[in-house]
Each structure stands twice: as structure tokens, then as C-alpha cells.
Nucleic acid binder design. Structure first.
Lengths: 353, 353
DNA sequence: CTGTTAGCGCATTCAC
DNA sequence: GTGAATGCGCTAACAG
């Protein structure tokens, strides 16, 4: 004899709970008169179905858990935006967590989201590339999931082909006449690694030598990029172009160039990745690779919703893992628009100090 | 005779459900032997408490609903980040929704979040300033809430004093020797309105005239800012400074100035609001007012958590609404650093086309 | 068409 | 210490 809100409506109308329920569901087997009454009374009593109770019995929460390494990077916030868009359209809400780039925290959050009974999971993992634990944990949780951005094999994944990104960026620099191309490689995550591979592939394909000193590991931040660029640009011979693993790093490179009085793009070509907000308005408008992060988030959400629907249709019948790749797009701006005159000229070292 | 996971553990151990429960809770009246066994078995069976069921009975979800007008603006994403931080630290998770700047959508989402039984609500409202409906809806929902950013009277609020922001920005321009100061006023939300008032206050205080043509309404976007600035800079006499309601607008102003060949800060001073990412690296590093959005989000979360704790302690005893203001900070960069020579010179109109 | 009944998984009060 | 019983609010399958 629960006194749930539904019950309350029923009581005040002197009818049965299940009649109220049926009326609220709009089931056709209810006299339109009682339906009206029920609807009216429900509004009066300000009745709101309790999703907890509902979910407990239907076994679906219409919640999708989103786990990202951080919320600082505009990358993940835009991705989240895309996810929210697609999810909301399908009547799903987002349970948002961040792992602060910590694998332990990530595992904990996944466990949490699972125990909150999310219908599905979208995660950008902070685990080292190739780690099996991530996908294993996820698998055995029994909750449908898709990974985004950071690539892991054998599972549903939505992201970009980072090797391709690396190639496109590097090929562009080569086409612009730059020959001594350095790379500021990001941390040990699949995206940074892929871009680095693409960089090497492009150099090799163009018959350009690969100098190890020209590749430096940095964080995904302007500070880190600036520092590394300062070092790079003081080597001899200095690079005449830098492919930065993402836009914030590239911004650091631009800072370093300005500090050293090096002209971009005349003496130094710079390309980033991500097409972050306002990079077109930098001191030197930045050439970059657009990633369409919103599309990544949206696509991931849609794929996940498919998986969820699938599972409800025929449990046991798991579809084989899918990998969906969003196309990267080269966006050419001033930072690689070398004056025609310079294109054939031998590259110039930065003025030392 | 539920077959809940808890029950499963109990069964497999041939003991009662409530014993298992007590053991898991770490209650002292359980033999440490049975506790060990229970813990071990729970782990084996991969037991995870079901938050739905738990919440249904405890009447708390440890969920806080976050409703923002959009996820595009870095403003709200950073705010959300701060909220996530504080919430996670207290064992709360975020249910994230966006209203897409639509009041109707906002109301719907609030109802949704309430029926999802969130313990509290943080909302940046997209309702017109002064609208009573927002706070009324929220009040009668019975869920503790705090509003952020967009100001509404008589309720818990965390944000900034936007009048002060407007004053600081305008006073700075005046101090830098600019006299014909225009303002690109944002849309009809409390923040934009407040900054506009501050602007007028500062002008008045300095004895400068207020020209209506110098105030234009724009959206919070570079495109909108650029367009309006183009118009403004072609008037005669043209303004020698522009206070933009936020950084994206200011970026549009910088674009317009470049298009017209107007030197910033020599011929035109520009100040924005928000200290958005990378505005220090723009073609002209932007002077702006930092808002510490993360702190806003964090503070709001903490205030909300207090309210929640309060309510649990002594229901009925509502604390009076609090208004918490985060201090705005003027960040001076190149866009207002007028060459000393020019400071006393009469302002110069932009070269007409 | 309407009313009765039995759980969903967990928290909690009370006997044993 | 441990076990049985009750209910959170809602869904769903069934009788009347």
C-alpha cells in the first residue's frame, strides 16, 4: 500500500492506482473521461514520475555516462557538447565525470557509473595505449560502451585517424617548401603517437631525413610547447617548420618564435591540430587540422544508442565492434603561407638570441 | 525474496541478507570472520550496490543537476569544470543538461532533473532578467538550488558583480587616456545589462558624455562584434576605444580594426570580459576582465552542498538566500596600452575605408 | 475497461 | 550477532 505520488492521485480520485497509471500512459483502453480527470488531478497535485523507481523496474535509466580525462581542454568539452546534443535528442541525459588523466580514477569512475546503472558509457580513456585493462573492465561491466578519441583496438571506437592527421600536416609543410620539419610530440596517448607516426611516414615518403633531435615530447600545453620550441629553434641547423601535436602547443611555438624574433611563416612554418576556438585570430593565424570534435561526440552517442537498442532487441547477439573515423580537414592559414620568394630559398636558422 | 545482488551474496554464503548488508557497511557488531567472508565473496561475485535502489529508499541520489544555456561558450564549460571538481570531491556526480538558451527548454529540463530526483540544482538561467517564473518553478520543485552567472534576486546566487566589471573596464580605458568610449552591449541577460550599467556609471563619474550611438547591442560572438565594430568605427567622430561585453565580441572588434587598418591600441583601445583561453596570444593581446569561472562553479557547488546538508539536518529551517560574488580582476594587455605619446593627443578617427 | 498483486534492489526496524 | 519483514514509487502481468 505505497503512498507514492501515483497512489496519491489514485486515492484522491477514488480509483485504482493502475487506472491512473494506464491513463497517464495514454493507453487506449481507458475512457477518455477518466483520462481527463486523471490528467487534471495529476497536474493539480504536481505529479512527477520518479525516475528512480521507474528505472529500477524497467532496468533502463536513459542515462549515458560520459568519462573524459579532463574538462580543461576544449577538445573534450566540445566532444561532450556533441554527445549531449545527440543524447538529448533521443531522450537521454548525461552523467558527466572526469578522470583527471588518472587511470585509477578512471577505473573508479567507471565502476561508479556502472553502479549508477547507466544504459551506456562513452569514455575517452586516460590509460596508456594498448592497456588491456580498460576494455576488459568495460567488457565485464556488461554495459554497452564506446571509446572516443584515444584509440583502443577491438572495441567500438569513434575518433580520427591520427596517422592521417600527422601525414596531412607534414605533407602540407613539405608542399609549402619547408624541409627541416620538427615535431612537438604530445604525451603517450594514442592520438599523439599516431600523429607522430604520420609525421614520420610523410617525411619518409618525401625522402626527407628524420632527425631524432627534431622530435621532442611535450605536454598538450602552450607553456610546454613554448619551452620545447625555444630549445629546438636554438639548435643548428634550426628547423624551418614545426608540426605541433595540437593547437595549444602550436600557440607556444608562436610565442617562442616571437620571443626569438623569428618570422612566421617566413622563417618558420607552424601547424597545429584541433582548430581550437579563435586560433584564426592569433598573432599569426594558425594553420591546423580540424577534428570536428562535436561530430565525434555526436557519432559516439548515436553509435552507443544503437548498441543499447540492439541489446534490448536481441540480447546475446552482440554486433562486432565498429570503428568510426571522422575526417580530418586541413585548414590553411597564415602560419604556413610562406612568401613565394622563400619557397625555393634554403631554410634560414633563427637569429640566435 | 528478492534475488538482488545482495541477496545473491547472502545465498551463496548461506547467511541472511541483512548480515551481508551489515558486514558491507562495516558495522562493528559483525564478527570479523563473517565480515571477511562477505567481503571476499562480494568481490568474487563482483557485487556493486545498485544506486537506483539505494537512492529510492535513502531519498538521496548524490546527484546534482547542472543546467546551462549552452556548452559552446567556454564560460559555461569552465564553470561546469569547477562544479564537477567540488562535487566529485564530496562524492556527488553531475547530471548535465543544456537549455540551448531557450526558456521553455530550460523549464522542461528542470522538471526532468527534478523527476530524476537530483539532490540539488545549479542553473544558469536563460530566462529574461527579472522573470519570476524561473525562481518560482525552482522554489516549488522543493529541490535546493543555486543560480549562477545570470542574476536573479531573492535566491541563492553565485556570480560576479557585472556592474563592477563594467566600471573597471571603462575606468581602465579612461585612465589610459581614451575619451570616446563605445560599448558593444551583449544580449538581454543580467550580465550584459550589468556591464552596460557599469559602463554608464564610469562615464558619468568621469564626467564624460554618454552617446547613444556609441552603444550597440550584439550577440556574444566575434561575428556580431566585428559587424557592429565596423559600423561604429565608420561613424564620425569615431570612438577611440571599445568596451566589449565579452572576449569573443572583443575579438570581433580586433578583426574589424584590422580590416579598417586601425591601429590597436594606438588609435583604438579594446577591452573584453572573461579572459578566455588564449586571448593573450591574439594578434593584439587582449586586455580583459578575468572572471574566474572555475571558482564560480566551485563556489556554487559548495554552497549547494551546504544547502543539501542543511536540509537533511533540519528540514523546514531554510537559510536565507545568499549571494556570493567572485572578484573580477583586470588583466591589462597590449590592446589598451596606448603609447604614452598618444595619451594626451586628441583621439583619431579610423581612416575611412 | 478497472482493480489486485507481485516484485525491481536495497535500507532499516524489530524479534530471535 | 543474525534473520525476517516491510516499504521506497513505479511497472507489468493478471484477474474481475
Amino acid at each position: 500500500m505505497g503512498k507514492g505520488k501515483l497512489q496519491a492521485v489514485a486515492d484522491s480520485l477514488q480509483i485504482s492506482l493502475s487506472t491512473v497509471y494506464a491513463a497517464l500512459q495514454g493507453r487506449p483502453d481507458i475512457s477518455s473521461k477518466t483520462r481527463e480527470e486523471v490528467l487534471a488531478r495529476a497536474r493539480e497535485l504536481n505529479y512527477r514520475p520518479n525516475w528512480l523507481a521507474r528505472s529500477l523496474v524497467t532496468r533502463q535509466t536513459h542515462l549515458i555516462g560520459v568519462l573524459v580525462p579532463d574538462l580543461v581542454s576544449s577538445f573534450f568539452t566540445e566532444l561532450t557538447r556533441g554527445t549531449e546534443l545527440a543524447a538529448a535528442a533521443a531522450g537521454y541525459n548525461l552523467l558527466l565525470c572526469n578522470s583527471q588523466e588518472s587511470p585509477e580514477s578512471e577505473d573508479a569512475k567507471i565502476a561508479l557509473l556502472v553502479s549508477r546503472q547507466v544504459d551506456g558509457l562513452i569514455v575517452a580513456s586516460s590509460h596508456a595505449p594498448g592497456t588491456r585493462t580498460v576494455t576488459e573492465h568495460l567488457q565485464e561491466s556488461g554495459v554497452p560502451f564506446v571509446l572516443v578519441d584515444r584509440y583502443f583496438a577491438g572495441v567500438n571506437y569513434v575518433g580520427l585517424d591520427d596517422r592521417k592527421i600527422g601525414r596531412i600536416a607534414t605533407e602540407h609543410l613539405i608542399a609549402q617548401g619547408y624541409h627541416r620539419i620538427a615535431h612537438l610530440r604530445g604525451p603517450n596517448v594514442s592520438t599523439a603517437n599516431g600523429r607522430w607516426e604520420g609525421y614520420r611516414q610523410a617525411l619518409r615518403a618525401a625522402g626527407l631525413p628524420l632527425h631524432n633531435e627534431y622530435v621532442q615530447r611535450v605536454d598538450f600545453s602552450p607553456e610546454s610547447g613554448r619551452e620545447a620550441a625555444l630549445r629546438l629553434l636554438k639548435t643548428s641547423p634550426a628547423p624551418d617548420a614545426i608540426f605541433a601535436a595540437n593547437d595549444p602547443i602550436a600557440i607556444g611555438v608562436l610565442q617562442a618564435a616571437r620571443d626569438l624574433g623569428i618570422d612566421v611563416p617566413g622563417q618558420l612554418g607552424v601547424v597545429g591540430v584541433g582548430n581550437f576556438q579563435h586560433v584564426a585570430d592569433l598573432s599569426v593565424p594558425l594553420t591546423t587540422i580540424d577534428q570536428n570534435k562535436v561530430a565525434v561526440g555526436e557519432t559516439a552517442a548515436r553509435l552507443l544508442l544503437d548498441l543499447i537498442a540492439m541489446r534490448q532487441g536481441q540480447p546475446g547477439h552482440e554486433a562486432p565492434p565498429r570503428t568510426v573515423l571522422i575526417e580530418p580537414i586541413l585548414v590553411v592559414r597564415a602560419s604556413t603561407q610562406r612568401p613565394a620568394a622563400a619557397k625555393k630559398a634554403k631554410a634560414v636558422g633563427g637569429k640566435k638570441k
